[in-house]
Design a protein around this nucleic acid. Structure first.
Lengths: 341, 341
DNA sequence: AACGGCTATACATACGTATTCAAGGCGGTA
DNA sequence: TACCGCCTTGAATACGTATGTATAGCCGTT
């Protein structure tokens, strides 16, 4: 059914030139006359010729491909993170602009992951997502650096200065969120989110929260600090805890939208109105934030900006050998959930 | 900094055998003695040897890679579809089980897309997502078939029997949704969703809806049929239209969750309670369906099942040359939004 | 007219693997 | 002991491209 694929020799024969000339003409080398180039391009078009990436990659020792590695703590959890998911599309687009394809893989954070892509020349560089800053995993990053692989990691550079990183300005985001609540006249603001070194992003958001309170001269009340992982249920339970502690509050800054939505559900269930009784601010700007009622005020990380920064960083690393860290600005999106009347 | 990559010759030298033997030992050929194999594996381990995929692919004429092509009607719209997004993770996993990697690409539906992956030997097969059943695009599929490419399409096989397809049983889903509303005692059930041949999925859901009504002996009321594309705003406007038409209704079947959520918001805004006044059922089971208040009853398509079916189909096509169509069952997830008290 | 410099093309080769073919060694049977 | 067949291994080669080196042609200068 299918004929044998045409090779650059077939094009050469048809155009009446040699194979190297075909290669040069197609790759845009300057040392090919305009006339020859035209003849070659016509021949290639006519035979529907496409460069064989395997042969090309073998010769050039590269793949023109990047690998996107998702790390997950438990099987299946990886692509539940809405922000990470929102990166995929823009990332594919940016890769295409640089002439790269994007390969996607999922790794268990706990298992001894292997990055075969770089080793096996299937990808020229690697983007790590969800790797976090757990110190226990640091040796692996060191191994990756030692192997000479090009990679960029999403996450703060603070904990360990290994490899290039791109991250949101989480601290500023936390500051903005709480400052906004203060501006709305709230004074007893609860923080809902995990505060442990394993989640550096949450920790930074908390730091911003505290800085905002300090700037307003408000003392920190430990009862208003509730632990919650990024699940709707955890947000609901956080409200129950606040009630149980008999800690009065008129504002909530949740370190992620999912728990913020849980908070709003719990408040609704006990008859406390959002935003009149309690103003709520989240973090992430997931799609559901816009769909919640009332729409959730939240700190947005721009997935396009993040994608571009990650891809640009890895491409720069590959093509120029230089690696830099980036911190991206965040933006407070004010919606109904935090607006006092 | 980085040494030269070890090749199979290096392994051969270290293990004291020839290069072909290394290749055979690593690919699990039977004609290698256990002792030799062990020596080779040890040498490979010691030098941290990885097969060069470019060279291997060039020799074998394959890439051990699949390409996932998203088609979008407008730039940036592709990865907004929550269901498609939820396929990515499971698909990557299934590909890995088959020994394939997954490449992701985004194409404009309107532009004259080129599937270079297959042409350029970068992928062995292609999975098409969001291609729909538009007749105008059919020639391209025919071209793809003619080129001998392996591909599978997500969507109904009904409109054009070109290539292998995998799809949900949308008609049954529509039937189940409306049947459920009927069982809850609803009699005036509105349908919110596009009914045009360009969206065959919606059309099928509508067909199921009509079949359920017919089975219950209820005549179709055209005023209860409102056009709405898959956006929250469209759902809200659908309610306004129903009100404007002075069409009484006690139930709504929305052809997708996003518009269903819009419907619920609009109902809330005009003081009609869900589910007491109006029962609402959606389609897709997007993450926000669980987070809405009240939680949305919806027809769920299982992303794992869909992913597995798509990947299995394409792998079968590549390795066995046979292509088959699949229709996947759907499941009604009953939540509060449709439960009469 | 001779020669240097430049442009455009051809020739030869290397990238690393998988596979075909041939050959060597070994044990078993007549 | 001689011969046949099987199991294991090695030598040679092809996959299709990109690039270093060499060569042919051309123009301008002296």
């Amino acid at each position: 059914m299918t004929q044998r694929r045409p090779t650059s020799f077939d094009i050469a024969a048809l155009a009446g030139v040699s194979q190297p000339t075909v290669s040069r003409a197609l790759s845009g080398s300057a040392s090919v006359s305009a006339q020859t180039r035209r003849r070659v391009l016509e021949a290639a078009e006519q035979l529907n010729y496409k460069v064989d990436k395997n042969a090309s990659g073998l010769r050039r020792q590269q793949a023109k491909t990047l690998a996107l590695l998702f790390f997950e703590e438990s099987p299946g959890a990886a692509l539940l993170n809405p922000f990470y998911l929102s990166l995929v599309g823009p990332m594919v687009r940016r890769c295409a602009q640089h002439g790269y394809d994007l390969l996607i893989s999922i790794q268990q954070l706990s298992s001894d992951w292997h990055v075969d892509y770089e080793d096996s020349r299937k990808a020229d560089g690697i983007i790590l997502l969800g790797y976090g800053d757990y110190l226990e995993y640091r040796p692996r990053l060191e191994k990756l650096v030692a192997s000479g692989a090009h990679f960029v990691r999403w996450g703060s550079a603070a904990a360990g200065e290994i490899g290039a990183t791109v991250a949101s300005d989480n601290e500023q985001g936390g500051f903005d969120a709480t400052s906004h609540l203060l501006q709305q006249g709230r004074r007893r603001i609860a923080f809902v989110g995990t505060v442990d070194p394993g989640s550096p992003e949450f920790l930074q958001r908390w730091n911003g929260h505290r800085r905002a309170l300090a700037a307003a001269g408000i003392e920190l009340d430990e009862r208003l600090q509730v632990d919650a992982d990024p699940r709707e249920e955890a947000g609901r339970r956080a409200v129950e805890q606040l009630i149980a502690r008999e800690a009065e509050f008129d504002g909530v800054f949740a370190a992620c939208d999912i728990s913020a939505i849980g908070v709003m559900h719990a408040l609704h269930a006990i008859g406390r109105h959002v935003p009149d009784d309690v103003a709520v601010v989240g973090f992430d700007d997931i799609p559901a934030a816009l769909l919640s009622s009332p729409p959730l005020t939240t700190v947005a990380q721009d997935p396009h900006q993040a994608s571009d920064a990650l891809v640009d960083a890895i491409v720069t690393s590959i093509e120029c050998g230089t690696a830099t860290n980036h911190v991206l600005p965040v933006r407070l999106k004010v919606r109904e959930s935090s607006l006092s009347r």
